[in-house]
Amino acid sequence: TLFEALYDYEARTEDDLSFHKGEKFQILNSSEGDWWEVRSLTTGETGYIPSPYLAPV
Score class of each variant (00 low, 15 high):
Thr1Asp: 13
Thr1Met: 14
Thr1Ala: 12
Leu2Gly: 02
Leu2Gln: 06
Leu2Ile: 15
Leu2Ser: 05
Phe3Gln: 03
Phe3Lys: 01
Glu4Met: 10
Glu4Arg: 05
Glu4Cys: 08
Glu4Tyr: 14
Glu4Asp: 01
Glu4Thr: 08
Ala5Gln: 01
Ala5Met: 03
Leu6Pro: 02
Leu6Ser: 04
Tyr7Met: 12
Tyr7Pro: 00
Tyr7Glu: 09
Asp8Pro: 06
Asp8Gly: 05
Tyr9Ile: 03
Tyr9Ala: 02
Tyr9Pro: 01
Tyr9Asn: 02
Glu10Leu: 10
Glu10Thr: 13
Glu10Asp: 10
Glu10Pro: 06
Ala11His: 06
Ala11Tyr: 03
Arg12Cys: 14
Thr13Arg: 14
Thr13Cys: 15
Thr13Trp: 14
Thr13Ala: 12
Glu14Asp: 12
Asp15Thr: 14
Asp15Met: 14
Asp15Ser: 14
Asp15Ala: 13
Asp16Trp: 11
Asp16Thr: 14
Asp16Met: 14
Asp16Ala: 15
Leu17Gly: 01
Leu17Lys: 04
Leu17Gln: 03
Ser18Met: 04
Phe19Thr: 04
Phe19Ala: 10
Phe19Cys: 08
Phe19Asp: 00
Phe19Lys: 00
Phe19Ile: 08
His20Lys: 15
His20Asp: 05
Lys21Met: 07
Lys21Cys: 08
Lys21Ser: 06
Lys21Leu: 05
Gly22Tyr: 05
Gly22Gln: 01
Gly22Asn: 04
Glu23Phe: 02
Glu23Ser: 04
Glu23Thr: 06
Glu23Ile: 03
Glu23Arg: 00
Glu23Met: 06
Glu23Leu: 01
Glu23Asn: 06
Glu23Tyr: 04
Glu23Lys: 00
Glu23Pro: 00
Phe25Ala: 00
Phe25Cys: 02
Phe25Tyr: 01
Gln26Ser: 08
Gln26Asn: 06
Gln26Met: 13
Gln26Cys: 13
Gln26Trp: 13
Gln26Glu: 14
Ile27Met: 06
Ile27His: 02
Ile27Gln: 03
Ile27Asp: 00
Leu28Lys: 02
Leu28Val: 08
Leu28Phe: 03
Leu28Gln: 02
Asn29Asp: 12
Ser30Thr: 12
Ser30Lys: 12
Ser31Ile: 09
Ser31Trp: 09
Ser31Cys: 12
Ser31Tyr: 09
Glu32Val: 12
Glu32Gln: 14
Glu32Trp: 12
Glu32Ala: 13
Glu32Cys: 13
Glu32Leu: 14
Glu32His: 13
Gly33Ala: 13
Gly33Tyr: 09
Gly33Lys: 12
Asp34Ile: 13
Asp34His: 10
Asp34Ser: 09
Asp34Thr: 11
Asp34Gly: 12
Trp35Ser: 07
Trp35Pro: 11
Trp36Ser: 01
Trp36Met: 05
Glu37Asp: 02
Glu37His: 14
Glu37Lys: 12
Glu37Ile: 13
Val38Gly: 06
Val38Trp: 00
Arg39Ala: 04
Arg39Ile: 11
Arg39His: 05
Ser40His: 07
Ser40Thr: 02
Leu41Gln: 06
Leu41Cys: 14
Thr42Ile: 09
Thr42Gln: 10
Thr42Tyr: 08
Thr43Ile: 00
Thr43Asp: 02
Thr43Cys: 03
Gly44Ser: 05
Gly44Arg: 02
Gly44Lys: 04
Gly44Trp: 06
Glu45Met: 14
Glu45Trp: 08
Glu45Gly: 08
Thr46Pro: 01
Thr46Met: 08
Thr46Leu: 07
Gly47Glu: 00
Gly47Ser: 02
Tyr48Pro: 01
Tyr48Glu: 02
Tyr48Ile: 10
Tyr48Gln: 07
Tyr48Phe: 13
Ile49Ala: 14
Ile49Gly: 04
Ile49Glu: 00
Pro50Ile: 04
Pro50Asn: 10
Pro50His: 14
Pro52Ile: 15
Pro52Leu: 15
Pro52Arg: 15
Leu54Ile: 10
Ala55Val: 13
Ala55Trp: 09
Ala55Leu: 07
Pro56Ser: 07
Pro56Glu: 11
Pro56Asp: 06
Pro56Tyr: 05
Pro56Phe: 05
Pro56Val: 08
Val57Tyr: 05
Val57Leu: 10
Val57Trp: 05
Val57Asp: 06
